[in-house]
C-alpha cells in the first residue's frame, strides 16, 4: 500500500476526510482486503483516542492557586458567575439560547402585528358618504353662483360697460378728427 493511500485511509478513519473521500475509501475497502483491515484498525484506534476524556485537574491545585490569588475559584461562586458560566460556558446551551432569542424576535414580528380595527359602523360610513355628497353639491352651487356673478355682474357691468365707454370715446375722437381733416 502506498503512502498516499494510507494517509487517506487514516483521515477517513479519524473522520477528517470529506464525504467523497469517505465514499471512495469505503468502496475501495470492499474490494481490497488490505485496505479494509487497515481502515478497521485505524478506526478502532481513532475510537479509543476519541473516548479519552480530559484529565481531571486535582482540587489541591485549585486550592493552592486560590490561596495565592486570594480568589474563590470553585467553592464560592457568585450568582453572576453561575449565570455567566451557565449561559456562556456551554456552546450547546449558548446556541440554544441564541436560537430561542431569534425565534422570539421573529414571532414578535409575525404574531404581534397591530390589528387594523374597524372604527366606524356601516351607518356612519353611509352618513359620511351622504355628507360628502351634500358638501360637494354645496360646493357646486357656490361655483355656479360665482360663475353667474362673474358673467352677469362683473364681466358685463363692471368690465364690459367701462370698456364699451372707452371704445366709444376713442371712436368719437377719431370721428371728430376726420371731420376736422375734411373741413380743412
Amino acid at each position: 500500500m502506498d503512502e498516499k493511500l494510507l494517509n487517506r485511509i487514516i483521515s477517513v478513519a479519524y473522520g477528517d476526510a470529506t464525504i467523497a473521500e469517505k465514499v471512495k475509501i469505503y468502496f475501495l475497502s470492499r474490494n481490497n482486503e488490505e485496505v479494509k483491515t487497515t481502515l478497521a484498525e485505524y478506526k478502532q484506534t481513532a475510537k479509543r483516542v476519541n473516548d479519552l476524556d480530559l484529565e481531571e485537574c486535582p482540587k489541591e491545585v485549585i486550592k493552592n492557586t486560590t490561596s495565592i490569588t486570594e480568589q474563590s475559584v470553585s467553592n464560592e461562586k457568585s450568582i453572576l458567575f453561575d449565570l455567566y458560566t451557565f449561559v456562556f460556558g456551554r456552546p450547546a446551551l449558548a446556541s440554544m439560547i441564541a436560537t430561542v432569542f431569534v425565534l422570539a424576535i421573529i414571532s414578535t414580528f409575525v404574531f404581534n402585528r397591530p390589528e387594523i380595527k374597524q372604527q366606524y359602523s356601516t351607518q356612519e360610513i353611509e352618513l359620511a358618504d351622504t355628507q360628502v355628497k351634500q358638501s360637494l353639491v354645496m360646493i357646486a352651487e357656490v361655483f355656479n353662483k360665482t360663475k353667474t356673478t362673474i358673467e352677469t355682474e362683473i364681466l358685463t357691468e363692471q368690465v364690459g360697460v367701462p370698456v364699451h365707454k372707452g371704445f366709444n370715446l376713442v371712436n368719437n375722437l377719431f370721428i371728430g378728427e376726420n371731420r376736422y381733416e375734411k373741413n380743412n
Binding site: 484529565e55 481531571e56 491545585v61 480568589q71 458567575f81 458560566t85 460556558g89
Partner: peptide, 24 residues
C-alpha cells in the same frame, strides 16, 4: 474587581482540565 473575578473563575472552570491534560 467582581468582573475580573468572574472572568478569572470562568477561565479556570473552562480550561483547567485542558491545561492539566496537556501538561500530563
Amino acid at each position: 474587581t467582581m468582573l475580573t473575578n468572574t472572568k478569572y473563575n470562568f477561565l479556570v472552570q473552562q480550561y483547567r482540565n485542558g491545561v492539566y491534560t496537556y501538561s500530563f
